[in-house]
Design a protein around this nucleic acid. Structure first.
Lengths: 252, 252
DNA sequence: TGGTCTAGCCTGTATATACAACTGACGGGA
DNA sequence: TCCCGTCAGTTGTATATACAGGCTAGACCA
């Protein structure tokens, strides 16, 4: 078996995907049971099981013990945007990433930072503010607060070399994260740092990351509305490739 | 076996996740091979294989035929935002969705619509414009173009009852989709329709959906920056989860 | 010394078998 | 008529076995 051939569990998956894509099977329709697939396709039950189990993980079908397998509602299929590290993104476009540190100090938490990090107002926090640029054009102002207990050496890093996000994610591997995206008018200081003309809105990504079950870092990422966008591409696993990526819009 | 107990493949997965989370295993470190897991945990090789295979799909580890299994770089783990149907979103918040149709006609494609739908300038397109409201407060202006060939009956629908997005996704189950998010200033007409004060920016989601390998619909969704945000939460499936992880209510 | 070849490990897949638990329908008994 | 038990069908899990094919280190030979 195997060889250059397509694995049989994959053939079974694609058989069913075709029936769904073509409309022969519609949402809530019953999908052939494992034993029916054994009879019709000649694979073993374990192979049929693997095909249906993977289709479940991929959102195509839903399974109910004792009842059967059914085509899932397509609206559940995720339409997704990816929030990526700005430096990676710039490098992947083949451009030069550079960063300028504006602020780097320890300060007392204000209301919003205390809320975001679930700590007390006035608690000591590390605070950095830096501007990331693509080919010398400012693209993101990053304002970040970090719990000192999580990263005691945070203020001794050179963030023009390693971004705060890269430094923090290296400290603790598996993190929980929350993102919120908004459109808002930047204040004058931010607009100036990003070289934004008056009246231009900003796309703001707020990101909180968790470690050991509690939030340890909170960042607000401001981008010029005219020069930055988030984008994502979703393709069902029949059509090849397509990565999602954020891109700088072409003009300006 | 089995019984009320946690399945063994899951126990093996969590064993490895713990070693990664605790830092005992770091990115690029070698993970025990299937046969080593057979020896140390007493499960069969197929069970060990399932555990490692699922960890691969979940992004924890990477496997190389003939070499071994290794802890993955965490930065690859996607931080994701979901773009959801506005009506579903409002209903899930327990509020009332309503829609008002502003425009509903067939017209010739202009430059941008022709580009987006990969058709010719001047080609006939269906065009609708409607405002979605949450508890009577306008929250989204939807401007949508559709290829007539894909949905000939499109203009005969009552979009105050079924949203265009729901109608189209029912027409063709498995779609490819592309999203782009921007911040921009709305023109006066849009600002008025959404009841936005002067100077307030809009969060704009552009969405193209494909069927049969070509784009069939293009929508621009304008939201008041002060009243709308996109958010997403990512939690790795190891963290005391199972409640939060199995509750993919976000995705449904 | 240098090149080649093989043994042993690794993952990937496929099958047959087995048992557990759940569901729904059918039929028999009170 | 209504309740309940049985039974067939379904998914979920677990194991033992088997073979294919990639990779690497070390043995072996020239």
């Amino acid at each position: 078996m195997t060889a250059a051939a397509i694995p049989r569990y994959r053939q079974v998956k694609e058989l069913i995907i075709r029936q769904i894509s073509s409309g022969k099977l519609k949402p809530h329709d019953r999908v052939p049971s494992e034993n029916e697939l054994v009879d019709t396709t000649g694979v073993s039950r374990m192979t049929a099981n693997r095909a249906l189990r993977e289709l479940t993980n991929e959102g195509y079908v839903e399974r109910v013990v004792g009842v059967g397998t059914f085509v899932a509602d397509f609206k559940a299929a995720s339409h997704v945007l990816e929030v990526r590290n700005i430096a990676d993104e710039i490098l992947q476009r083949g451009n030069v990433h550079s960063a300028v540190v504006l602020t780097m100090l320890q300060q007392a938490a204000d209301q919003s930072a205390a809320d975001a990090l679930q700590t007390d107002i006035g608690a000591a926090l590390f605070h950095v503010r830096l501007v990331h640029a693509e080919d010398r054009i400012p693209l993101q102002l990053e304002e970040r607060f970090v719990l000192p207990a999580f990263a005691p050496d945070f203020l001794r890093q050179d963030f023009t070399v390693v971004t705060p996000s890269a430094y923090l994610s290296a400290k603790s591997p598996l993190q929980e994260a929350e993102h919120v995206v908004r459109a808002m008018m930047p204040d004058e200081e931010i607009a100036a740092a990003l070289n934004m003309p008056p009246g231009e809105p900003a796309l703001v990504v707020s990101r909180r990351t968790w470690a050991h079950g509690r939030p340890v870092s909170f960042a607000r990422l401001f981008h010029p509305g005219s020069r930055f966008q988030l984008s994502g591409h979703y393709a069902p696993p029949g059509t090849e490739d397509m990565q999602s990526a954020s891109q700088r819009s072409q003009e300006q």
